[in-house]
Amino acid sequence: MRLRTHKLFLLLAGLMSTVTARADWTVNMTEGVTSLSRSIYSLHMTIFWICVVIGVLVFAVMFWSVIFHRKSRGAKPADFHESTLVEILWTSVPFAILVAMAIPATKTLIEVYDADDAEVDIKITGYQWKWQYEYLDDDVGFFSNLKTGKEQIYNLRTKDPEYLLEVDEPMVVPVGRKIRFLVTAADVIHAWWVPALAVKKDAIPGFINEAWTKIDEPGIYRGQCAELCGKDHGFMPIVVDARSEADYQTWLDEKKAEAQKIRELTSKDWTLEELVARGEGVYTKVCAACHQPNGKGMPPMFPALDGSDMAVNPARMVEHVDIVVNGKKGTAMQAFGGQLSEADLAAVITYERNAWGNKTGEMVTPKAILDYKQTGKLPEVHAGKASEGGSI
């Protein structure tokens, strides 16, 4: 008996200790910050209260019947078998209720799917495990990756308020303009979901789904991938930064200038040291999650790069470039040719051939990567050395 009392006390103490956490729970969907989200919320509440009224009436009649027409009070069951009136009532009343619910639902659904006359078109592509945003009217595109550090994920430091909900490059959009999203995926099924905008669309390889929004007020709106898409499903958040028209145009001009600078890097004459330094940042951002920061990988799914024959054998340089640019079918190795610039591709390959114990001294230039994309072949290795090895 004393043991049971002790267990009950511990259970109650545990429940009381979570009061603060439970205070943050919500039992309803968010109203959102757009006209569309408010329409959806209004429809939700309308249907909810209709269901509440139906539930109250049904249970009221049921309990009234149980209490006042029970056998102990001498009640006799009514006999209305094959009653035409009853048949009409229990057919017409639910039909009328469904029609009353269908009218606002149809109106809202028409609004949800009306992506016509959009002023900004953004293509959203889901990757394992990041998002790519392409502004189709402005020739601007970039990847959005999780910003939360590994130290927080592995509980080595205090977690930030926006733990697992912060990115390095948010999607920036203007307020007061209709924005159309074209949602797809490059590998597996993802789902782009931002509750405050009332947008949730599956990103399916080979298909393009359409959604839209029009944000009224500037602000930061967060979401996450809502489809189980692999081991890092919980590590691909979404951040939408809604700005005033002037601030949006300033950001857009900066991104265009940045894109032009990246294109100019292809023709630059690089040194081995410059490529390795740039490549380390690229590797940490897009490769370390699978192949590990120390290059040891997680065999057999993610092979080691440190000491790998592909990464140290000069005869396999083309193979190394090909697998980074085009990926490898049937494995988790993605094709990074469309994700990274020529400068970043050259830098990360050069880094992998010179990091850890792979001191080959070999380098691949952005020009060589561009040639490989266009012709499928790498230029011959120059007779000169890049530090100790060859340069392509």
Rank of each mutant, 00 (worst) to 15 (best):
Lys268Gly: 14
Trp270Asn: 13
Trp270Val: 13
Thr271Glu: 04
Thr271Val: 05
Glu273Lys: 11
Glu274Cys: 11
Leu275Asn: 01
Val276Phe: 05
Val276Gly: 08
Ala277Asp: 01
Gly279Met: 04
Gly281Asn: 03
Tyr283Gln: 11
Tyr283Ile: 07
Thr284Asp: 13
Thr284Gln: 15
Thr284Arg: 14
Lys285Asn: 12
Cys287Ser: 03
Cys290Trp: 09
His291Met: 06
Gln292His: 09
Gln292Tyr: 11
Gln292Lys: 12
Asn294Thr: 05
Asn294Ile: 05
Asn294Gln: 04
Asn294Glu: 04
Gly295Tyr: 10
Lys296Arg: 13
Lys296Ala: 14
Gly297Lys: 11
Met298Phe: 07
Met298Lys: 06
Pro299Trp: 02
Met301Glu: 04
Pro303Lys: 03
Ala304Val: 12
Leu305Ile: 03
Leu305His: 04
Gly307Asp: 04
Gly307Ile: 01
Ser308Cys: 01
Ser308Asn: 01
Ser308His: 00
Ser308Gln: 01
Met310His: 06
Ala311Arg: 04
Val312Tyr: 02
Asn313Gly: 08
Pro314Thr: 12
Pro314Ser: 07
Pro314Arg: 11
Pro314Gln: 11
Pro314Lys: 12
Arg316Gln: 05
Met317Val: 15
Met317Phe: 13
Met317Arg: 15
Met317Tyr: 15
Val318Leu: 15
Glu319Ala: 15
His320Gln: 08
His320Met: 05
Val321Thr: 14
Val321Ile: 14
Asp322Trp: 00
Ile323Asn: 09
Val324His: 06
Val324Lys: 06
Val324Thr: 07
Val325Thr: 13
Val325Cys: 15
Asn326Ile: 11
Asn326Thr: 11
Asn326Val: 13
Gly327Pro: 10
Gly327Arg: 08
